[in-house]
Amino acid sequence: MSDDELVSEPQEERRRSAAARLFDVRRVIGGLFVVYGVIVGLVGVFDGSAALDKAQGVRINLWAGLAMLVLGLLFLLWQWLSPAEAPEPPNADTERESVENREGDASVR
């Protein structure tokens, strides 16, 4: 094994790990809930008397916005505390064996 191969393996691992974290669905869901929670919460803060009368005196938009904000922050905290790891690359030997097994199954039929 050459020095170039040894250097490139950790870099490749870091790149795959960064890509796995970037596309983690918890980040997308958490971010959307945070944004929508802030928007709905602000609407709830500035609700007029007609909206309060409609909701029987409860600032429902404020409470829903706060709940969405908390849920979004929990998703982001979960993603931060337990980051996604990149899956292991398939091994060339394993791939070759699985192709041979499939070809063998096809010839039996």
Rank of each mutant, 00 (worst) to 15 (best):
M1E: 13
D3G: 12
D3E: 12
D3Y: 06
L6P: 01
V7D: 14
V7Y: 12
S8N: 08
P10F: 07
P10R: 06
E12S: 14
E13I: 15
E13T: 15
R14E: 15
R14W: 11
A19Y: 03
A20C: 04
R21F: 01
L22A: 14
L22P: 00
F23Y: 10
F23R: 07
D24N: 12
V28I: 15
V28Q: 09
V28M: 15
I29Q: 02
I29N: 12
G31V: 12
G31I: 11
L32A: 12
F33S: 06
F33T: 00
V35H: 02
V38Y: 10
V40P: 01
V40C: 03
G41E: 01
V43T: 02
G44A: 06
V45K: 01
F46L: 05
F46K: 06
D47N: 09
S49M: 04
S49V: 09
A50N: 00
A50I: 05
L52G: 01
L52I: 03
D53S: 11
A55C: 04
A55G: 09
Q56P: 01
G57Q: 05
G57A: 07
G57E: 02
G57W: 08
G57I: 03
V58C: 05
R59E: 06
I60W: 05
G65F: 10
L66K: 08
L66F: 14
L66I: 06
M68E: 15
L69K: 04
L69G: 00
L69Q: 05
L69Y: 08
L69M: 07
V70W: 09
V70L: 13
L71P: 01
L71R: 06
L71V: 08
L71Y: 10
L73P: 02
L74C: 15
L74H: 12
F75Q: 07
F75S: 02
L76A: 04
L77M: 13
L81M: 10
S82E: 05
S82M: 14
P83W: 04
A84S: 14
A86E: 02
E88P: 01
E88G: 09
E88W: 08
P89Q: 13
P89A: 14
P89I: 06
A92S: 08
A92Y: 06
A92G: 01
D93F: 10
D93V: 08
T94Y: 00
S98D: 12
S98A: 15
V99P: 00
V99Q: 15
E100A: 15
N101R: 15
N101I: 11
R102P: 00
R102C: 01
E103H: 05
E103Q: 10
G104N: 12
G104M: 12
D105W: 02
A106Q: 13
S107N: 10
V108M: 14
R109N: 08
